[in-house]
Computed example of a mutant assay.
Amino acid sequence: MQMYNINSNDVEYMETRALITPLNEDVNNLNEKCMIMFPGDSTTYYSFDSVSDDNHNLYLPEFLNSINPGNLLPHKLTLKRGCPIMLLQNIDPKIRLFNSTRLICRRFGRNIIETNILIGHFKGLRVFIRRIPLKSAEDYKMPFELTRKQFPVILSSALTINKSQGQTIGHVGIYLPNHVFSNCQLYVALSRGVSAHTTRVLVKNYVIEGHEGVFTKNVVFRDI
């Protein structure tokens, strides 16, 4: 808590720290816990959901808000000044605002979020994020097409191992509540940090029959 109070406005500090874990569910839980630790009041944004050609208003807003297709943004987004976020869409290739770009929140308007880029050549550049409309994927089995207008970001104090690929993180915490489940995922997690001294691993389910100590399985598909 004290470290967030001191460093919540420090781009260098936030850039070099992240937690990574295999599953989205654990990422969401970690991000919520980290966000609570940031000082100051939170700002919550709710999406605007609609259904095309719903002339008779068959679908109530409360029902649409409760739907969470995998490719859409969350209905409720809660942020604080200084918390790190990550883009989920390509916004502006000229300044490398791509999917997975990390930013830090600065100020919140009614329909805009002021941020600074956290990584890369344009680190520190001030950018403004607006709401964008996204449609539900065709393979998500619904009798209608849902359009959700929301800010294309999520909290990024914690990332999935897959989302962390290609990033170098100065201080990385690897949270493994269960054994990793896909090919070379453990290698990807362990290679995000810059050294063993700045990499910490927490393994919850560490018992492997016939071995004493703390272990996690390294899943490797030999055929691949």
Rank of each mutant, 00 (worst) to 15 (best):
V127F: 15
K123Y: 12
D41T: 13
I91F: 05
D10H: 02
K80R: 15
I95Q: 05
Q165P: 03
G166S: 02
L23V: 00
L134I: 10
I67L: 15
D139L: 03
D41H: 15
N205F: 00
D53A: 11
I91C: 09
M1P: 12
P133N: 02
Q150V: 08
L58C: 14
T44K: 01
N183A: 02
V172R: 13
L58A: 03
S8K: 05
N178W: 08
L88K: 12
I174C: 05
H75C: 15
Y187S: 04
N99H: 14
N116G: 00
E209D: 09
L176E: 04
Q167D: 05
L19D: 09
P69Y: 00
G82N: 08
D49K: 13
N99W: 06
I112C: 07
Y45M: 09
L23Y: 04
P39R: 08
K149Y: 00
E15N: 13
M35G: 02
I85W: 09
G120D: 12
D139P: 00
R96S: 11
G213L: 13
L64K: 12
M1E: 11
V172P: 06
R126Q: 05
L159R: 10
P93L: 05
L118T: 03
T198S: 13
N24H: 08
N178L: 07
L60M: 10
E15S: 15
N29E: 15
M142K: 06
F144G: 14
I208S: 06
V188N: 11
R131W: 04
N31W: 11
M86V: 11
Q167E: 10
T44I: 12
N99D: 07
P133H: 01
D139V: 04
Q165D: 02
P22F: 00
R148P: 11
N90V: 10
